[in-house]
């Protein structure tokens, strides 16, 4: 670029030419740097607009009222577009879940690591094999061989802690982040 600029009619004296060129180069590079920074900042809104919008984020977490759920009852709520199973487990189910040897589990995980309060099991009701919704929420449903949930699509069996016991699913039913706001309200997400 400097070559074409040197199509000048009058050549400058040596020192002045070098100083001038240095000044021009500094001006050039600082302008380029400022321009690059400005362009990056200008591009950001176009990329950020694809991120989840405010109305989507508003539904990123939900609060669920647990007071109506009886022992041995399950409900399904929708969270971030997916079903979440919330079950108030019976004493037998809790004992059974806690008594399983880790060696028997394809995806070893202690029951204590999957619940905050043993009575309440909260997990995403999407089979970890290929995404169907397992049966077991309603009283008439098949609960599989381990008394928990059964996925009809390819025959995955989950136990009373929602852990995979038999079938093609590789991992346990995922537990979302949740916290108890009080004894009867849980906030998921």
């Amino acid at each position: 670029m400097s070559e074409s600029a040197q199509n000048a009619d009058q050549p400058m004296s040596g020192n002045a030419e070098i100083d001038d060129k240095t000044r021009r180069d500094f001006l050039l590079w600082s302008t380029v740097a400022v321009g690059a920074a400005g362009t990056a900042l200008a591009v950001w809104p176009f990329i950020d607009q694809m991120n989840p919008a405010a109305d989507t984020l508003a539904l990123a977490s939900i609060e669920v009222d647990l007071s109506a759920i009886e022992v041995g009852q399950s409900i399904t709520v929708t969270w971030r577009g997916k079903p979440v199973f919330i079950r108030r487990r019976t004493e037998e189910e809790i004992t059974e879940a806690e008594g399983v040897a880790l060696g028997d589990l394809p995806d070893p995980q202690k029951d204590a690591d999957r619940v905050q309060k043993p009575e309440w099991l909260v997990m995403v009701g999407v089979c970890t094999h290929l995404g169907c919704i397992p049966l077991g929420q309603k009283s008439g449903d098949s609960k599989g061989e381990f008394g928990g949930w059964f996925c009809p699509c390819h025959g995955s069996h989950y136990d009373t802690s929602g852990r995979i016991r038999k079938g093609p699913a590789p991992t346990n039913l995922p537990v979302p982040g949740y916290e108890f706001l009080d004894d009867t309200t849980v906030k998921i997400g």
Partner: peptide, 11 residues
């Protein structure tokens, strides 16, 4: 930035 561009243009 425009001022810088102008200076560069003059140069």
């Amino acid at each position: 930035f425009t001022a810088m561009l102008y200076a560069l243009k003059r140069k």
